[in-house]
Design a protein around this nucleic acid. Structure first.
Length: 893
RNA sequence: AGGCUCGUAGCUCAGGGGGAGAGCACUACCUUGACACGGUAGGGGUCAGCGGUUCAAAUCCGCUCGAGCCUACCA
């Protein structure tokens, strides 16, 4: 951003005099947050406008599920996105951030089912149509809640473009995508063993199965094998599935089991004859007895074996987890009850060779935690390999970049071992599968509902009752929101998007699938950068004990303000995998907001009604002026760099440090004497007021992406341009302001002041006790180190009773601070030094000096270390020696 | 079974081959004309352990221990 744009069209000296520029004494964010949000929205700030030719910056929101309200995890991601959006907007980009929500098939259906259950209503009695109506009612409420939460957070989303995954045009996109994949041969229907949740009554994908280690049992069961006296002992963790066994399998090369080759076993209880088959893929020669029971209808591996060997499939567990008629006397029992009974029967028949404790991994339903059953059923699948290959290449070639980079590896791992995706769900809420079967059994897949069968002309067409996996529509989100497959203006202008921000937990569910779908359907990657942030963990005990459980971001906003919540998020957003949010960080951020508020109040009170410099050209700037402006430029540079690297924590820390410790603790204290003296240097005061204005206004701009409300509020009072900070230029490095000598001089001043105060501490005297300071240098010498110019400030800040240039008298405590030899003294008779404390410092110095001289005595170091490192070490040694000598000389007078 | 990440101050976490950092908490003092949601000063760490590479390791490599996460069709 050019410098001219920042200073704006202003006179050389401006005056702020309007009384309305005063800030309220107490900082109460609730008073202005909603007002500013309304203003921005009404003025179209959230819409993509910008100077012609300006670059665009596009994001789509990861659409929250309409299952309820947002929790702190959502608010975290949205905050990061808004920081990016506001930053880019201020950097002159045409920013578009698209809002929306996800219908979240299985999750939302469960919410409604639970509600109905409470009312004593059975979903089936209600019927599909009524049920879906009810979900729509709920959806409206949930969406409104979510939207208002996001608004309260301050997110600058373009609400005129809000989308929902079940909107008519997005539903059309889903049908289009389905048909296209079908026609491309990438969607197929078939009867396979899938992950089945008996409670939800639907198939789920591999990703929706949560594996947990559980302590179970391994049951060893003896099957009779005519011709082999000992019979065959097989092991299983699920004895009830034996009723569906249709074979036993051995490894073709295992001598232990060779005797079973070609034999036929008899299934206990049922009496069915089971061929002994040989299968090198299924059977692990090393494991157990080397004989495996084969249950093609209830195990994915066994299913594959069954296909290879043409085995019958006997379904003994039904869709609700109850034993089927095939289970004979056990029919109707829950699978776990059946297990008990079957084990009892086997025991009584003396067929139980043993039960061993067995810890193994067991799949659970992601939604309801029910144990997943492998279940044979007809489902729709996406053939993923052909889609995955280009998606892998897109990341290999850096067309898409993951931040942090470590996720790239995880992405590759999964993508290279990807399995076909079961996309049909036996649910009511979602996109109906666009497949139709006529009375004669002909299947038609079509974007528009067909009225007659294209094959036989039958007009009795029934649509597949199943719906699609929610993620099938989510994967289209970055382009379906823009009207795809129609070539709309928005699609042309805003797709592909730039950055996607989301939690790493949905890397496979969503991100990977968007990449695959984006490339397949639109020919381009859907975004160029993926920022995967950590997942928010509440520092539970602390927060819940003192505040009640702060789960809803609104609760945190009420208590601390939206800006504080946002700042707490940003400063917690480290590159790791968990983000810990605790009430300490929230109150710390609230304190920071208050600090800014008070600094602004002070600044305004100083500027008000008085002339101030608008530009600094041709003006004599004091060292403190030059120091703080230099630091301002570096801070702006750092903030921009950190944001470009998605290091929100770094940027937040930089701004915090600059504003609090340099601007407030440093500069404000330095200019107070100048500004408050009646007969002071009016030109210097005018300059200082200009510097104050510049630092504060730039700080507000730098902080605006993090704390939009507070900064906009103060900006209005400061600049009297209400509501414009959001579109003001983001401060950048301004090399002309950088002044290393001024920085060094003021750092030296601050170190000296600290030493004086610390000297009082050493002697245990009050901060008001008069102290004399000698600076062992010639007063008349040139002021290269700035000490002479800064002497009055040093006297003031150090509360010195005397400041003398020249050698300190005997009896004064000597020291060296930032290379400056000094002497310090209290009035005669004042307290004595804290011996222990000084001795400790001396011991520390000795230790460090020992280390340094050790290094410098080492020829290898002198020979091999870079010259600048050696020089630096020498310099440091000299400094420390000087300090050691000074401190030691008169330490205990 | 594989893979990834992480063990740094009491807590939460930055840093990352050449002088151990921040915020909070803690101690002492300060009702100083913006701010006690504040100021000033201070205490506190063989950077998990062991070995290696290097002139130099908290930082790179290997192993061990500990924590977390992810993937997976071991009966």
């Amino acid at each position: 951003m050019p410098e001219e744009e920042r200073s704006g069209a202003a006179d050389s000296v401006g005056v702020a005099e309007d009384l309305s520029t005063k800030l309220e004494k107490t900082f109460a964010p609730a008073q202005f947050e909603e007002r500013w949000y309304r203003t921005w929205e009404a003025e179209g700030r959230f819409q993509p406008v910008g100077p012609p030719g300006s670059p665009r910056f596009v994001m789509v929101i990861p659409p929250p599920n309409v299952t309820g309200r947002l929790h702190i995890g959502h608010a975290f991601g949205r905050t990061l996105e808004d920081v990016l959006a506001r930053w880019k907007r201020m950097r002159g980009h045409r920013v578009l951030w698209v809002p929306g929500t996800d219908h979240a098939g299985i999750a939302t259906q469960m919410v409604i089912e639970r509600q109905l259950a409470k009312e004593g209503i059975n979903k089936r009695d209600l019927g599909r149509e009524k049920f879906v109506e009810r979900v729509w009612l709920w959806k409206r409420e949930a969406k409104d809640n979510i939207q208002s939460q996001i608004r309260r957070l301050g997110c600058s989303l373009d609400w005129t473009r809000e989308r929902f995954t079940l909107d008519p045009d997005l539903s059309q996109a889903v049908r289009h995508a389905f048909v296209r994949l079908y026609e491309d041969g990438l969607i197929y229907r078939g009867r396979y063993v899938v992950n089945w949740c008996p409670r939800c009554g639907t198939a789920v994908s591999d990703l929706e199965v949560v594996h947990k280690d559980v302590d179970g049992s391994l049951y060893r069961i003896r099957y009779d094998v005519p011709g082999v006296a000992s019979g065959a002992v097989v092991a299983t963790t699920r004895p009830e599935t034996m009723l569906g066994d249709t074979a036993l399998a051995i490894h073709p090369d295992d001598p232990r089991t060779a005797k079973f080759r070609g034999k036929t076993a008899v299934l206990p209880i049922v009496g069915r004859e089971l061929p002994v088959i040989e299968d090198a893929i299924l059977v692990d020669r090393e494991f157990g007895t080397g004989i495996v029971k084969v249950t093609p209808a209830h195990d994915a591996n066994d299913f594959a074996v069954g296909e290879r060997h043409g085995l019958p499939q006997v379904v003994v567990i039904g869709p609700e987890g109850k034993m089927t008629a095939e289970a004979g006397e056990y029919a109707g029992l829950d699978r776990l009850e059946a297990r008990e009974k079957i084990v009892g029967r086997l025991r009584s028949e003396n067929r139980l060779a043993g039960i061993d404790p067995h810890r193994h991994s067991l799949g659970h339903c992601q939604r309801c935690d029910t144990v997943i059953e492998p279940y044979l059923s007809t489902q729709w699948f996406v053939k993923v390999k052909p889609l995955a290959e280009p998606a892998i290449r897109a990341v290999e070639s850096d067309e898409i970049r993951f931040v942090p980079e470590m996720w790239t590896k995880t992405y590759f791992e999964w993508m290279r071992n990807i399995h076909d995706w079961c996309i049909s769900r036996q649910l009511w809420w979602g996109h109906r599968i666009p497949a139709f079967t006529c009375a004669n059994g002909h299947l038609t897949v079509s974007e528009k509902d067909p009225s007659t069968c294209p094959k036989c002309g039958s007009s009795e067409m029934a649509q597949d009752p199943d719906v699609l996996d929610t993620w099938f529509s989510s994967q289209l989100w970055p382009f379906s929101v823009f009207g795809w497959p129609k070539e709309t203006d928005d699609y042309r202008e805003f797709y592909p998007t730039d950055v996607l921000v989301t939690g790493y937990d949905i890397l496979f569910f969503w991100v990977a699938r968007m990449i695959m779908a984006g490339i397949h359907f639109t020919g381009s990657v859907p975004f160029s950068t993926v920022h995967l942030h950590g997942l928010v963990r509440l520092a539970g005990a602390k927060m819940s004990k003192t505040r009640g459980n702060v789960i809803d971001p609104l609760v945190a906003i009420e208590e601390f303000g939206a800006d504080a919540l946002r700042f707490a998020y940003a400063s917690s957003a480290t590159a790791g995998t968990t983000v810990t949010l605790d009430s300490e960080r929230l109150s710390g951020s609230r304190n920071f907001a208050t600090k800014i508020w008070n600094a602004a109040r002070f600044t305004l009170s100083q500027i008000q009604g008085k002339p101030r410099a608008e530009t600094f050209e041709g003006r004599a700037l004091t060292l403190p002026d030059r120091w703080i402006l230099s630091r301002l430029s570096r801070t702006a540079a750092d903030a921009n760099r950190s944001l470009a690297d998605f290091r929100f924590d770094e940027a937040a820390a930089m701004l915090y440090g600059f504003l609090w410790h340099e601007f407030c603790d440093g500069y404000l204290e330095m200019v107070k004497p100048l500004l408050s003296s009646r007969d002071g240097d009016e030109t210097a005061a005018e300059t200082a007021r200009g510097v104050l204005y510049r630092c504060l206004s730039d700080s507000l701009a730098l902080l605006h992406p993090f704390m939009p409300f507070l900064t906009e509020e103060v900006w209005e009072k400061l600049t009297r341009r209400p509501g414009t900070l959001i579109v003001s230029p983001y401060p950048m490095r301004d090399a002309a302001l950088e002044d290393p000598r001024a920085e060094a001089a003021v750092e030296r001043l601050r170190a000296l002041v600290t030493r004086v105060r610390n000297f009082r501490g050493e002697r245990k005297v009050s901060p008001t006790e008069p102290v004399s300071l000698w600076i062992d240098a010639d007063e008349g010498a040139d002021d290269a180190d700035g000490l002479r110019e800064l002497a009055p400030l040093l006297r003031h800040l150090g509360r010195l009773s005397a400041l003398t240039f020249g050698p300190p008298p005997t009896g004064a405590q000597r020291d060296v601070v930032s290379g400056v030899p000094i002497g310090l003294a209290l009035p005669a008779g004042a307290a004595h030094a804290d011996r222990a404390r000084i001795e400790k410092t001396l011991a520390q110095l000795d230790r460090e000096l020992e280390e340094l001289s050790g290094k410098l005595r080492n020829p290898a170091f002198l020979d091999k270390a870079p010259p600048d490192v050696v020089a630096k070490t020498r310099r440091r040694q000299a400094e420390l020696e000087e300090r050691r000598a000074a401190l030691g000389s008169a330490a205990f007078e």
